[in-house]
Design a protein around this nucleic acid. Structure first.
Length: 274
DNA sequence: GCTGCATGATGAA
DNA sequence: TCATCCTGCAGCA
């Protein structure tokens, strides 16, 4: 379930579990055999996330670049020994007391600092990264001002903002009441600011909780987040035809940027956000 | 058992 | 705009 919140959570958990340790690596599936052989026995210095990308720095200067894509998954085992990996496990990383398995990534490769820099220059600001909030917001607004595509498409462009995926784009637009069809460069400064703040707080909440929850409890009649049913956590995503949690208008669906997108035509009326 | 779909991204046409 | 790559699992026979 990899949007930015998941990736940052993986980075944090993996740093805690095997960071600073000597790590044995292997590739049961075989497709990363050469890389695993090269890394094995080295110290893993840090794990950093930028949007949906992970960068692992190893003793000796090697950089492991991982992108989960749509299907990729990590498993972190704190038992010793860990259960055996499945045959399609691309990479195993075994530290002192924890073992991490990676399967199904779009990218799992060794790169040099120049390649990492190039990847990072193509990524927009990441609401979950440290750094000046004002600078990141300004960069976000500059990126929006350069695009005529609908804001619903721009939010999936990792060069505009890094870490937002198909769930958060629908939810952030719903919560800010912005029409997803509005051209990105016509968003008002106020709407862009609210969109950035909303994206940041939703991603932070997701990173902490380990799952995406965007509803205000009052809108679903719950007292605690732990009381929420699985189908009560979101406002728009995946809810086509179901009543809006705020105004009861049926949620609409369309294709935007090759992915399905959901919104409320009443809470996000045409032109809202301009 | 098979089909289709998924919280992603790219490269060809 | 479409095909393609990566994997797992819900839904259906």
């Amino acid at each position: 379930m990899p949007e930015g919140h998941t990736i940052h959570r993986h980075a944090r958990k993996q740093r805690e579990a095997i960071g600073g340790q000597t790590v044995e690596t292997a590739s049961p599936q075989g497709r990363f055999a050469a890389g695993a052989k090269r890394l094995s026995g080295r110290t893993l210095e840090t794990v950093e996330a930028h949007g949906k990308h992970l960068f692992y720095r190893w003793e000796g200067g090697e950089i492991l670049h991982v992108h989960l894509g749509l299907f990729g998954k990590f498993k972190l085992h704190r038992t010793s020994p860990a259960p055996p990996p499945t045959p399609n496990t691309r990479l195993t990383m075994q530290g002192d007391r924890a073992t991490i398995y990676l399967a199904g990534p779009t990218i799992c490769e060794l790169i040099d600092p120049d390649a990492e820099a190039l990847i990072r220059t193509r990524l927009g600001p990441d609401p979950l990264q440290n750094g000046s909030r004002r600078k990141k917001l300004e960069e976000f607004q500059r990126n929006l001002s350069r695009r005529k595509i609908p804001i619903g498409a721009a939010l999936l462009d990792q060069g505009v903002v890094a870490g937002i995926g198909n769930v958060y784009r629908a939810e952030a637009l719903f919560r800010t009441g912005i029409d997803p069809h509005l051209p990105a460069n016509t968003l008002s400064s106020d709407a862009a600011t609210r969109l950035w703040s909303e994206s940041a707080s939703l991603l932070k909440r997701g990173e902490k909780a380990g799952r995406i929850i965007t509803v205000d409890l009052a809108d679903v009649g719950a007292r605690r987040r732990s009381d929420l049913e699985a189908d009560e956590r979101l406002y728009a995503y995946g809810r086509d035809g179901e009543p809006c949690r705020r105004c009861r208008t049926p949620i609409s669906m369309t294709d935007m940027a090759n992915r399905r997108m959901w919104w409320c035509g009443s809470c996000q009326p045409p032109g809202a956000g301009s």
